[in-house]
């Protein structure tokens, strides 16, 4: 038990907010540069490769749609792990991580929904269908927005952390539903073609730009996430400093 808690203390010591800030300062420029590089390559690839004989030009939508959809799930997974961190290990940064990931996740989910809709209109002839995959992603979007609203509604971050962590973990059941919805139910949405046990079924012509874009989006996510975490730490420092200022205000001016 004591060994365990010692290990935890070391672990959280490594990631104490001040160290995290120093680390973030060093990492962020590199991460941002790398993301920009991958984006440049990805965009170039996605506009130079050929269109699909069946889907025509619209296949290019895939290069933004699939990475954002993938990120919408990954971001929630990151939040769920952070929520575990808050509840089980009481890690000081876990709740910062969960809180700052929510708006980013919501944005990418929004992007996945909108680009999917732009893809669906020419392919299926409709902007939206209530099939399992689309509906579950929409539910994910609503969950993100709900979590943001919850975080904003509570003044004290220490208290809101536990509550939203519980909610995040409960909501995690949606992630496997999204992932496997295309296999469990027979729907309009095409089944997974990249992440399969028997290897990707997608043509390498499309796979290359898709993978590059996926890497670029992932790098972008981590850049934004770390920067947002840094902002959140700063925000809490400002809050605590202000409370400190409020406690001291009026004493020195009134002291005889």
């Amino acid at each position: 038990m004591s060994e365990n808690s010692l290990a935890i203390r070391k672990f959280s010591d490594l990631a104490n907010p001040t160290r995290f800030l120093a680390l973030a300062d060093r990492i962020l420029p590199w991460l941002a540069a790398l993301a920009a590089l991958f984006f440049a390559a990805g965009l170039w690839l996605s506009f130079t490769t050929e269109g699909d004989y069946q889907q025509g030009e619209t296949v290019r939508i895939m290069y933004v749609h699939v990475p954002s959809a993938w990120l919408s799930m990954m971001c929630y997974t990151v939040m769920a792990i952070s929520a575990l961190g808050t509840l089980v290990w009481r890690h000081p940064l876990a709740d910062v991580s969960a809180k700052s990931a929510a708006p980013i996740g919501a944005s990418f989910t929004f992007l996945a929904l909108v680009t999917g809709s732009f893809w669906g209109k020419p392919m299926w002839g409709t902007w939206w269908v209530w099939d399992a995959r689309l509906t579950s992603v929409f539910v994910l979007f609503l969950m993100y927005l709900g979590l943001i609203a919850l975080n904003r509604a509570m003044e004290d971050p220490a208290r809101s952390a536990r509550v939203s962590a519980v909610l995040i973990l409960v909501g995690f059941v949606n992630i496997p539903i999204i992932k496997f919805s295309v296999e469990w139910w027979n729907t309009l949405h095409q089944p997974a073609s990249v992440m399969r046990l028997d290897g990707p079924t997608i043509d390498p012509e499309f796979l290359r730009p898709l993978l590059v874009m996926a890497v670029a989006f992932t790098l972008l996510f981590f850049t934004l996430h770390i920067a947002a975490m840094r902002n959140e730490i700063w925000r809490r420092r400002v809050t605590s400093l202000r409370r400190q200022a409020a406690r001291h205000a009026g004493r020195e001016t009134l002291a005889p």
Binding site: E57, T58, R60, I61, H65, S68, T115, F118
Partner: peptide, 16 residues
């Protein structure tokens, strides 16, 4: 071939 270009451009614009 370019019939759906508008949708592609719109997607990338929204993403950007």
């Amino acid at each position: 071939m370019m019939s759906h270009a508008a949708y592609v451009i719109a997607s990338y614009a929204v993403a950007a």
